[in-house]
């Protein structure tokens, strides 16, 4: 992108400096192999074994092939396929939180970086919006559980008018909305900071040129800001998706691990946690669930990346 003039010497130099690349990436690659890749493989290996506790006796590990997966995809007696429900729950709650999160963050980032608006007290606003992210998810969950509990402040207001208390955590959509809202509240400031850094990275002279040419603010946003912000925006969406698939703390604590009402707020990781830490310590099933989670992430990341792969790579030396 920047060095078109000296591409000829760059060619020659690439021979002598290229090996330094290995030195720079070595720590990352080494740690990744030991701390993520090997554990990943051994988790998958676990999925092929029958290994759980029944009371005090440990069953297995015995090799059972794909039995764990077959069990995972066998619908219950009432015809419900639990793994599908958990996936749908996770994605529904993620989308419910992520849409307002990205819309708010984009708006805020544009407001803060606008040369035209010249917002006063920016430092204060920027500092404040990120603060919800500092609160532990468990603390947030406890707070909101109190606010919306059957005898909480919201219901005190409702019952004060003589109405019957609304049991927020007994209704699928109110429970999901509360969880999604907590996720939105925790993460929109984080997203704003990332997008702001991205907008600030855009060459300011482009904005100046646009305003001299008489472009209005929506033109500037859609023709300059948004296209140039794309790499960072993609990053934001992907990391939000990773976070969403890992959704665990908030629903776990709000529903006390049950995923109620009627398992409609149970996420994939809650199910995984239940297999690892539950009474049965079903490592085989936990392994199988991990593989499924892995495949789902794989499909999603493939979809995102197919639409985002940059067309041109910058010149390198």
């Amino acid at each position: 992108m920047s060095s078109t003039t000296n591409s000829a010497p760059a060619k020659r130099r690439s021979i002598s400096y290229a090996k330094w690349g290995y030195f720079f990436i070595a720590p990352f690659v080494l740690v990744f192999i030991v701390c993520t890749f090997i554990p990943l493989v051994s988790t998958f290996y676990n999925s092929l074994f029958e290994n759980y506790k029944e009371g005090l006796t440990v069953v297995g590990p015995n090799f059972v092939g794909f039995d764990n997966f077959v069990k995972l995809f066998t619908p219950r007696a009432d015809g419900r396929l639990e793994i599908l429900n958990y996936t749908v729950n996770t994605m529904t709650m993620w989308i419910m939180g992520a849409i307002p999160q990205i819309v708010f963050a984009l708006l805020l980032a544009v407001i803060f970086t606008s040369e035209r608006l010249k917002i006063k007290g920016q430092g204060f606003f920027k500092t404040v919006i990120y603060m919800p992210n500092l609160i532990m998810a468990s603390a947030f969950a406890m707070l909101f559980f109190q606010i919306f509990s059957d005898v909480g402040p919201i219901n005190q207001i409702i019952t004060a008018n003589g109405d019957k208390a609304f049991l927020f955590f007994n209704n699928e959509w109110s429970a999901k909305s509360i969880i999604a809202f907590i996720n939105f509240l925790m993460w929109f400031g984080n997203t704003t900071i990332l997008l702001m850094a991205g907008i600030m990275g855009i060459d300011q002279s482009l904005f100046e040129a646009a305003s001299i040419d008489g472009a209005n603010s929506s033109q500037v946003f859609f023709k300059i800001t948004l296209p140039l912000l794309m790499p960072i925006l993609i990053y934001v969406v992907i990391t939000a998706l990773i976070g969403g698939l890992q959704m665990f703390d908030v629903p776990q604590i709000i529903t006390n691990g049950t995923g109620n009402p009627d398992q409609t707020t149970k996420t994939l990781v809650m199910a995984l946690n239940g297999q690892i830490n539950g009474n049965t310590r079903n490592f085989g099933m936990a392994g199988a669930l991990s593989v499924i989670l892995f495949i789902i992430t794989g499909i999603l990341s493939f979809i995102v990346f197919r639409s985002t792969e940059p067309k041109k790579e910058g010149k390198k030396k």
């Binding site: 990943l40 676990n46 990781v269």
Partner: peptide, 10 residues
């Protein structure tokens, strides 16, 4: 994209 929980067991 791989969540940390996926490799937690291993």
């Amino acid at each position: 994209m791989i969540p940390t929980q996926v490799s937690a067991l291993g």
